[in-house]
Design a protein around this nucleic acid. Structure first.
Length: 521
RNA sequence: GGAGGCGUAGCUCAGUCGGCAGAGCAACGGACUUUUAAUCCGUAGGUCCCGGGUUCGAGUCCCGGCGCCUUCACCA
């Protein structure tokens, strides 16, 4: 507009809203509102449509047609002749999403997290006092309303407003009313706007909440104890990942953010917590991708006197219960295909799948090596099982539509897992795959302290100097020396589970506030 | 980290061959008491991501930077 309109000045649109805010103050309203008791959710109010009656001149009360279709309702109402609709008095509150101004009559759609409803706001019905308030309303404001629940002539369920209550002014203009925010960066940075104005976002995060609740319930019903382990570790153990570093000032101590929950849960099994789990955040200082966020939510469960097969049963139950909780059936959409979670999930061994998908004998190291070379994998100097595992990742995993449990991995690629007693070359481990994505990982846990210590040492050898934060966790070995029961252990990536169950193609759609670079000024 | 794409009004997006910066929604003023993305008349709104360069002239072409997205790599 002019030179003085710099970024320090209120924007043009904001100025209009602040002007209305001042008018509200002048009219004696609090632009940021007060406690508002006794309202019903809009969803509950919509359910009261059945209480609306048509009252004919003789005083007879008639039910409305069922089903209540707007077009049919219009004809029905005309056929009734004289009379009027009578409905219950209701009180609602919500955000203004649409505003149709017809002069002395306004139609205002308000929304809360249970739904949306139209307000019929007429000057004659409302009175002069509250009508002045109508002229101070903007899209995005929060208002309360008292009125009668009825239908308009065109059959739209509406609250016919008798009183309005101003609850909160929105100084910022909302995004385009039908598209909402489109720019994925803004949707993540300003998740509050995304949640308030974009369809389906709230449902996705409410689904996440229900999934997590369901998991806790299933575990609690099974006698598992939930604990909260430390997130600040002096040794970042339990996984092979680069940790975030931090520092405690008073102790002058370098610390790491945890990269896994495992080692403390196992200590607790030594202490007698036979069934224990933690559902919490872990932090890995690694790349960001549609499947990776630097902080993510992990479930780890340990069950004394069980093994990886106990964890397979539990994994299936956790997922099945969560899906039942969502109430959308077992066949869920995923992109332009579907995933069928109907139990039981398939259970196949690593070697079976390897043979089927590659056509190569899983025991024939020479044939596997030549297959690996034929698909361009580097094989020089690699252990045959490592080559096999790379071929598996390259050729088999993507074919695992699933859900499918892959069991009995080569022991050499999972050193911290117990081996089958009768077949020491096979590790008691499974991974659950769904559409090529690893969703869960479980082991029969190693509880031999001497073997554990030896494997730690082997793992640390040959590790580059900059990874020297990977240190021997002597206290953990000491714990094992006191005796940890044989046990099954399970890890589930909660974010990925939520992705699959809510048809989200990126992890950033199921994390409310994913890590972003700070906003530039 | 590599490759590709994108960045224009509060929001969603056009912008041709390098030639006056555009639309819809939102906003402001006006009309309308049964609308459904209401409609109609009028007004205002711009650091074209940032910095250089080429050119008489750059939103457009070139170079560098920043951010986001996609993909690959990394990732028990």
């Amino acid at each position: 507009m002019n030179q003085s309109q710099t970024s320090e000045d209120p924007s043009f649109l904001e100025a209009a809203r602040r002007e209305k805010l001042q008018r509200l103050v002048d009219l004696g309203h609090d632009p940021f509102g007060q406690r508002f008791d006794d309202r019903e959710s809009i969803g509950a109010i919509r359910d009261r449509v059945h209480q609306i009656r048509f009252v004919s001149p003789d005083g007879c009360r008639h039910h409305l047609p069922d089903p209540l279709v707007p077009e049919a309702f219009r004809g029905w109402l005309e056929s009734q002749g004289a009379g009027e609709l009578v409905g219950p008095q209701v009180r609602a509150a919500g955000r203004i999403m649409l505003h149709r101004d017809k002069g002395k009559l306004h139609f205002i759609d308000i929304e809360d997290w249970t739904g949306r409803i139209q307000l019929f706001v007429g000057k004659a019905q409302l009175g002069e006092q509250d009508w002045q308030l109508v002229e101070c309303l903007d899209l995005g404001d929060l208002i309360g309303v008292d009125g009668e629940l009825r239908l308009t002539k065109t059959g739209e369920l509406s609250i016919f407003a008798r009183r309005l209550h101003f609850l909160t002014k929105s100084i910022e203009p909302p995004p385009a009313k039908h598209q909402g925010l489109v720019d994925p960066e803004l949707r993540q940075r300003q998740r509050y706007v995304d949640l308030a104005y974009n369809e389906g976002v709230r449902d996705r995060f409410l689904a996440r909440s229900r999934i997590v609740q369901s998991i806790r319930r299933t575990l609690a019903d099974d006698g598992f104890v939930e604990i909260e382990g430390p997130t600040l570790h002096s040794i970042a153990g339990g996984a092979a990942a680069r940790p975030f570093t931090t520092h405690h000032n008073a102790l002058d101590l370098s610390l790491f953010m945890r990269i896994a929950l495992e080692l403390h849960l196992k200590r607790l099994m030594v202490g007698g917590m036979e069934r224990v789990f933690e559902l919490g955040r872990v932090y890995r200082n690694e790349g960001i991708s549609p499947r990776h966020n630097p902080e993510f939510t992990m479930l780890e469960v340990y069950q004394a006197y069980g093994d990886y097969r106990s964890m397979m049963d539990l994994t299936e139950r956790l997922i099945v219960d969560a899906i039942v909780t969502l109430g959308k059936g077992f066949v869920l959409p995923w992109g332009d295909v579907t995933i069928d979670f109907t139990p039981p999930f398939a259970r196949r061994t690593y070697d079976e799948l390897f043979g089927e998908q590659t056509g190569v004998d899983p025991q024939d190291a020479v044939a596997i090596r030549s297959l690996a070379e034929s698909i361009g994998l580097e094989t020089a100097g690699k252990h045959p099982d490592v080559v096999k595992s790379e071929v598996f990742e390259e050729r088999v995993e993507e074919a695992l539509i699933g859900p499918i449990f892959v069991t009995d991995y080569p022991a050499s690629i999972c050193p911290l897992t117990k081996r089958k007693r009768e077949r020491p070359e096979v590790a008691e481990r499974f991974e659950l795959f769904v559409r090529g994505m690893e969703l869960a990982n479980a082991y029969t846990e190693l509880n031999d302290p001497d073997l554990q210590e030896r494997l730690f040492r082997t793992q640390l050898e040959g590790m580059p100097e900059e990874d020297s934060m990977a240190r021997m966790d002597h206290d953990f070995v000491r714990a094992l020396r006191h005796g940890m029961p044989p046990a099954g252990g399970l890890g589930i990536g909660i974010d990925r589970l939520v992705m699959l169950l809510t048809n989200s193609s990126t992890i950033r759609d199921v994390i409310l506030f994913p890590l972003l670079r700070p906003e530039t000024a």
